[in-house]
């Protein structure tokens, strides 16, 4: 088995390096820098305060154009921003939601939101077409954005990204952080260092001091980008904390079980020789 693996890997590495060399000859654009995230690594979890700040950034800035189709109640769930039940209720009630069913008179009506409702779309853009008409491209729904964006890692990095201790699943967060901090050409508000082709439909959405943090976190573009990227990572993958917790248990259990089975197997086979 080991011989199998080593030989196949050695020849494949040689081959892929040759082919990969061909690929790298082309022009490249800078890749998003890899940041450190509280939810990275093997045991990382979301930082509640950061997610709350991220939600504030979403609400005050992103939500002007981007939908975030998740139910209000999830903002109070454990492993997320964990707003209190009252905060979630108040927040939901501050939105006007179109009731999915008509009333007794057959009229579609609006009412204050409840925690069970999905966060409504931005008022200015009732549908994707309206948004596309304004910007040339519809601002994507942000509920899965952090999982829907990746960038090419290239050989051999993509191999390391799968290995324990080196694993890399936060590409979406890095991408979002990079895009928001990538408006480095002051003459052109739609030029972005990290966007493929550098021409992005979204004009620079946020800059230093745009959101008033209440917890003393410095009001810098870098912090806003970091917090919204963390918040969107949670929105896209709300079960990460639970997944890591169960995963650790499963791993410990499986290693013990496999170890015991190995010795049982050895014992059984002793009689065969």
């Amino acid at each position: 088995m080991i011989r199998f693996t080593i030989k196949a890997l050695a020849s494949a590495v040689a081959l892929v390096s040759i082919v990969g060399g061909v690929a790298f000859a082309e022009g490249e654009q800078p890749k998003p820098p890899r940041e450190s995230w509280s939810f990275g690594g093997m045991t990382g979890t979301y930082n509640k305060a950061q997610l709350q700040r991220g939600f504030q950034v979403y609400r005050e800035v992103c939500s002007n154009c981007h939908a975030l189709s998740i139910p209000f109640r999830t903002l109070g769930q454990s492993g997320g921003p964990e707003f209190s039940e009252d905060q979630v209720k108040t927040l939901a009630a501050s939105y006007q939601v179109t009731n999915p069913e008509p009333n007794d008179k057959g009229e579609i009506f609006k009412r204050p939101g409840t925690p069970a409702d999905i966060i409504p779309r931005p008022d200015g853009y009732p549908n994707d077409q309206a948004a596309a008409a304004a910007f040339g491209k519809a601002p994507p729904d942000m509920n899965l954005l952090a999982k829907a964006r990746k960038y090419e890692r290239g050989f051999p990095w993509f191999v390391f990204d799968a290995l324990p201790g080196l694993q890399y699943q936060e590409m979406g967060a890095d991408y979002i952080h990079a895009i928001l901090t990538g408006y480095t050409n002051t003459d052109d508000p739609t030029w972005n260092l990290y966007y493929p082709g550098h021409k992005i439909a979204m004009p620079q959405p946020i800059s230093d001091g745009a959101v008033d943090y209440k917890d003393g976190t410095p009001k810098t573009l870098d912090n806003y980008s970091r917090d919204i990227a963390a918040f969107l990572s949670w929105a896209a993958e709300p079960n990460l904390n639970e997944r890591r917790r169960i995963g650790l248990g499963v791993m410990i259990f499986m290693f013990v079980l496999a170890g015991l089975l190995y010795f049982t197997k050895k014992r059984v086979w002793e009689s065969a020789h």
């Binding site: 093997m42 999982k147 829907a148 990204d161 324990p164 997944r243 650790l248 499963v250």
Partner: peptide, 12 residues
């Protein structure tokens, strides 16, 4: 499943 569930999936 538990640690790199999206590694093999396409972001698109």
């Amino acid at each position: 499943i538990f640690y790199i569930p999206n590694y093999l999936l396409d972001a698109d």
